[in-house]
Amino acid sequence: MALNIIGLDVQKTKVLVNDLNVLLANFQVYYQNLRGIHWNIKGKGFFELHAKFEELYNDSQMKIDEIAERVLTLGGEPLHTFEDYMNHAKVPVGKHISKDVKAVELIVASISELLKLERSLLEKAGDANDEGTNAMMSDLISEQEKTVWMMNAWLHK
């Protein structure tokens, strides 16, 4: 078994880099969704949601950078074009969303897709003995589960 510079199996690391790039692409779509609903939200919940969506997109921007840096740490190259992002998108694309309920439902649907990708990465990172990716996925999952709970509470679900 060939090991890379940080002591991980080269073949398993290639799989992780690919999956991290898919996650990166989906986070970029999620980020753009958040920007769009932040800009276009209307209604009585405007002030509350406008601020919340800004908080979420700022947080997503930091996570995007962390994921890209993890790809680099593992010896890969992060995806960085909109074409790449759309070719790997599993997160729904939100367009013309200005109503509060639709915006929050988009967030829940997007995070649900991200969670699927992260859980798969968590399993593969464990198998590859990649504690760095494992810890990152664990942190993302617990934080996003809480966000889904809070968004569903707002939706009264």
Rank of each mutant, 00 (worst) to 15 (best):
V15F: 02
V15W: 07
V17T: 06
N18R: 15
N18F: 02
D19Q: 12
L20V: 04
L20F: 03
L23G: 03
L24M: 05
A25K: 00
N26M: 09
F27M: 09
Q28G: 04
Q28P: 00
V29G: 05
Y30P: 03
Q32T: 10
Q32L: 14
L34M: 11
R35I: 11
I37F: 11
I37D: 12
H38F: 06
W39P: 07
W39D: 09
W39K: 06
K42D: 05
G45K: 15
F46I: 06
F46G: 10
F46W: 04
F47H: 12
F47M: 06
F47R: 14
F47A: 03
L49F: 12
H50L: 07
K52L: 14
E55A: 13
L56A: 14
Y57E: 13
D59N: 12
D59V: 03
S60M: 08
K63N: 11
K63L: 10
K63S: 11
I64M: 10
I64D: 13
E66Q: 13
I67H: 02
A68D: 02
A68E: 04
E69A: 01
L72E: 07
L72T: 04
T73S: 08
T73A: 08
L74K: 03
G75E: 00
G75F: 02
G75L: 00
E77D: 06
P78C: 01
H80S: 15
T81F: 08
F82M: 14
F82R: 05
E83I: 12
D84C: 06
M86R: 01
M86F: 13
M86C: 09
N87K: 11
H88F: 07
K90T: 15
K90V: 15
V91T: 15
P92C: 14
P92R: 03
P92Q: 10
P92E: 11
K95P: 03
K95Y: 13
I97F: 09
K99S: 08
D100N: 13
V101Y: 03
V101K: 14
V101A: 10
K102F: 11
K102Q: 15
A103C: 10
A103T: 04
A103D: 07
V104D: 08
V104K: 07
E105G: 01
E105K: 08
L106G: 04
I107R: 02
I107Q: 04
V108P: 05
A109R: 03
A109S: 13
I111S: 01
S112L: 01
S112V: 08
E113T: 04
L114K: 00
L114W: 04
L115I: 15
K116S: 13
K116L: 14
L117S: 10
E118T: 03
E118M: 06
R119L: 04
R119Y: 08
S120M: 02
L121R: 02
L121M: 04
L121Y: 06
L122S: 08
K124M: 02
K124I: 00
A125N: 09
A125M: 04
D127F: 11
D127K: 15
D130H: 11
A135N: 09
A135Q: 13
A135L: 12
M137E: 09
M137H: 04
S138P: 00
D139K: 15
L140K: 07
L140V: 01
S142I: 15
E143Q: 15
E143P: 01
